[in-house]
Design a protein around this nucleic acid. Structure first.
Length: 296
DNA sequence: TTGCAGGGGTCAA
DNA sequence: TTGACCCCTGCA
């Protein structure tokens, strides 16, 4: 089977996708955009996406997805891994100064995942005023409490719960997930979600400001969280989520002084334009791994 | 062993 | 604009 430039071979329980470039699992799964992929001792990653568990391995142009079929490739993985996009071209366009050249080279295998909108709303509400290892723990705990169990390679995994999964269960149990004051944001958000029909298509029809405004109606969603939701569910790529790491790296490498959130947003818009979201990911990964701007 | 500082966006005063 | 919110980690 062929889809665009890819050749997909089905073999036992796995598929092998040939001719995949600009793909590095470490960069993709550890650049802060997702919380449900776990590195295995052999270097592969196991992740829960929608209602399935898969294992992903990549070497020299070959992407292996275990526990999957070629139909899944068409239905899920092609979009999820954003395989229709030429990241070499994007990298060429945004690596227009020495800083971006370094950041792009450092995270050369980053791809933006197109993740589930509901999952992103809840996940990024949990991300505010929080650190990545803890966010991962909380989401894992929520999935164990409210999701469905799936066994894979002798271990149990849990899907991220759908709205019904939450609402049909006891929301008081959220407290055991150690999310602190964010629990009440989640409960309120779920109640609001139940009453509305918010879909990705709704957001794609809206302009950027209207989409942001709509997301910020949910409690716990401010400007940064709203931009993360839009970017990581593949709705908008012209946003520049500005957290402490991005602020630090832009201040240190571009301005050489302290700047406001608004100044950074204006800079990103004029400098990176429609590719701001990609630039943000390379910069974030670079800043965090290299600890740029951290006071010693 | 204990206790305190630090990290991290949003909300409400 | 500023302090409070919550939990975990690291380090005296």
């Amino acid at each position: 089977m062929k889809l665009k430039e890819y050749c997909v071979i089905e073999e036992n329980d796995k598929i092998i996708v040939e001719n995949v470039h600009d793909f590095n699992p470490v960069h993709i799964f550890e650049c802060g955009q997702c919380f449900r992929w776990v590195k295995q001792p052999d270097g592969s990653y196991i992740g829960v996406v929608r209602d399935r568990v898969v294992k992903v391995r990549y070497r020299s142009g070959m992407l292996e997805i275990h526990n999957s079929t070629s139909n899944d490739f068409l239905d899920i993985w092609y979009d999820y891994f954003d395989l229709g996009r030429d990241y070499s071209e994007i990298k060429g366009l945004i690596a227009k100064d020495e800083i971006m050249k370094k950041a792009v080279e450092f995270g050369s295998g980053i791809r933006l995942l197109r993740q589930d909108l509901w999952e992103m709303i809840i996940s990024f509400i949990l991300s505010s005023n929080n650190i990545i290892p803890r966010i991962i723990k909380i989401i894992d705990s929520i999935s164990r409490t409210y999701g469905k169990k799936i066994d894979f390679e002798g271990k149990s995994y849990y899907t991220f719960p759908c709205i019904d999964g939450f609402m049909n269960s006891d929301l008081e149990k959220l407290e055991i997930c150690r999310a602190g004051y964010r629990c009440k944001y989640i409960v309120k958000t779920l109640e609001m979600m139940e009453k509305t029909t918010v879909k990705i298509s709704n957001f794609q029809e809206l302009g950027l400001e209207a989409a942001r405004k709509k997301l910020m109606e949910f409690p716990g969603v401010g400007p940064k969280v709203a931009d993360c939701i839009l970017l990581f569910s593949g709705i908008r790529f012209d946003v520049f989520p500005t957290d402490v790491w991005v602020k630090r790296v832009v201040e240190e490498l571009y301005f050489g002084r302290e700047v406001s959130f608004k100044e950074i947003q204006e800079f990103a818009k004029s400098y990176f334009g429609p590719l701001a979201g990609f630039a943000q990911q390379y910069l974030f990964f670079y800043a965090r791994e290299k600890k740029i701007g951290v006071k010693k």
